[in-house]
Nucleic acid binder design. Structure first.
Lengths: 91, 91
DNA sequence: AATGTATTTAGACAAATATCTAAATACTAA
DNA sequence: TTAGTATTTAGATATTTGTCTAAATACATT
């Protein structure tokens, strides 16, 4: 189930930008939203998709929900793309 | 323009499967279609999207149109994903 | 407990996407 | 040049997606 979801999640520019933000470090939903010209509800929608794709995970802290990048799935994607290029999976 | 297109193109399972077929070698539109339970028109639609994303290119041969994988764009995607993982772009 | 702040959920809706059928193109081969 | 095969294009349509507003949750703080 994960694979198709991941590509779908990566297909939206806003979601890719969210991932780029999170690359710099964990960030609350509100902080993420502040970088976009969208309502919080829409941001929440995108975060849900990223979460379902296992690209981010969350933890509650105080009153906030902090989002954090999860890089483990990215490796799978890289492997899939590399294999298209005809490369060997080096162990 | 290319980047967003590429992710969009990769987000559909049928199109990913087409790329996997082409990994084995060039193939005509008809041959590709034979692997799917879709009309030729639909296959043609997917091929157009892959073409616009520079993921495949085509050449006419006899009566057929032969599609072939173009791996050059894939490298960009890998770089983007790798950079998310916080890896250095090694030159 | 009451109020306030952060985030998500629900419901609506317009735009984008994937699909089909039917028709049009582009060649090949008689 | 006519007929046949391969592929694409056009037009229609159902589904999915991204977005909004309004309401609901979940905590924190007073």
């Amino acid at each position: 189930m994960a694979f198709a979801n991941t590509f779908k999640a990566l297909s939206d520019p806003a979601r890719r930008q969210i991932l780029e933000l999170l690359k710099k470090g964990p960030m609350s939903a509100g902080e993420i939203g502040a970088h976009f010209d969208m309502t919080g509800a829409t941001i929440s929608y995108h975060l849900k998709i990223l979460r379902q794709a296992d690209l981010v995970f969350e933890k509650r802290e105080k009153n906030y929900i902090i989002y954090q990048l999860n890089t483990t799935v990215l490796e799978e994607i890289i492997l899939w793309i590399s294999s298209l290029k005809g490369e060997e999976t080096d162990s």
